[in-house]
């Protein structure tokens, strides 16, 4: 019974976070902000929803944990690669952005000017 409640709570928590991430993708102004919403929120949301499924059915816990672990390992890398790729391919920052850390490193500027 208590497992049931925890499992459904985790699934709803994850579903709401997935929805909020998707909303952020539509609403945010530029690529880098959308990247924040689209990968951080969906990582947390997918992780908790999948673990919730595992808690509802304790026999499934091992495999759901593997899926969640895989998402936890790969999602930051793909977001990192996408952010770097958008910066390198010359996507401009939003005009109200206050800081551009990548400009402080010499190699990024070199690559971008070429």
């Amino acid at each position: 019974m208590i497992l049931n409640v925890i499992g459904w709570f985790l699934i709803y928590f994850g579903a709401v976070f997935l929805f909020l991430g998707a909303l952020g993708i539509v609403r945010f102004p530029d690529v880098y902000n959308r990247l924040q919403a689209g990968t951080k929120c969906t990582t947390l949301g997918a992780f908790s929803a999948i673990i919730g499924v595992g808690i509802l059915h304790p026999a499934w816990l091992a495999k759901t944990f593997i899926i969640a672990l895989f998402i936890l390992l790969t999602n930051p890398i793909s977001s990192h690669a996408l952010g770097r790729a958008s910066y390198r391919s010359g996507v401009k920052l939003w005009e109200k952005s206050v800081v551009d850390k990548c400009k402080e490193f010499a190699e990024c500027v070199e690559e971008r000017n070429e």
């Binding site: 895989f70 390992l73 790969t74 890398i77 990192h80 690669a81 770097r84 390198r88 690559e111 070429e114």
Partner: peptide, 20 residues
């Protein structure tokens, strides 16, 4: 063509993920 090198984060992570 001049190609950009893959970043350190990507190299480390893929080395970890490859056997998995």
């Amino acid at each position: 063509r001049k190609k950009t090198a893959p970043s350190l984060i990507m190299r480390t992570e893929t080395k970890l993920l490859f056997p998995m």
